[in-house]
Amino acid sequence: MSAPKTSRTWLATGFIVLLIGAGWTVHSLRHYSPHRLHLDRKLADLQRIASYQESHEEKRDAVRAFDALPAQRPPELAPLLREHLPGIRAEVRRRETAAAWGDWQVHRMEVSLDDVPLERLGFFISLAETQRPPWRLIESNIRATDQRPGHARATVVFEALSK
């Protein structure tokens, strides 16, 4: 092969490589936007799921706090009533029970009190809420009685988590 022919072969090779490089660049540029969009979508998903995880962790922390309690069932309300509201006619009735996370369940108890002093009622509700696990007031119906001022007929519904 003569020298010019060799040079021309190199020139052709050079231009083919340049063409490939240019073609590849055009291809990369044309496909960059879809790739970028796809990646942005993934990152947005990741960010969203990470935020879910954060709030989920908060909930798990709450579960762990309950798991760490020494007792995993709140004290019965009837004995509490007898002890702290003596002489007041009270009726305790079990309401619905629903499944919660893991082995935990949500219990609802309805307490009907006849002619209860309102300040004693407030005291009892506070007392129930300070139990571990706590009872939580979710509903209350109080109706005044004609007999004595400051007294009422009350129906309160408590909710508590227990195993």
Binding site: W10, L11, T13, G14, I20, G21, W24
Partner: peptide
């Protein structure tokens, strides 16, 4: 002229390779 062709060839080759590597 051969040198000019060779230089053009190497320049094209180098540019092409750089583009390929970058891509």
């Amino acid at each position: 002229r051969d040198g000019a062709i060779r230089r053009a060839a190497w320049t094209a080759l180098a540019a092409g390779l750089i583009l390929c590597i970058v891509n």
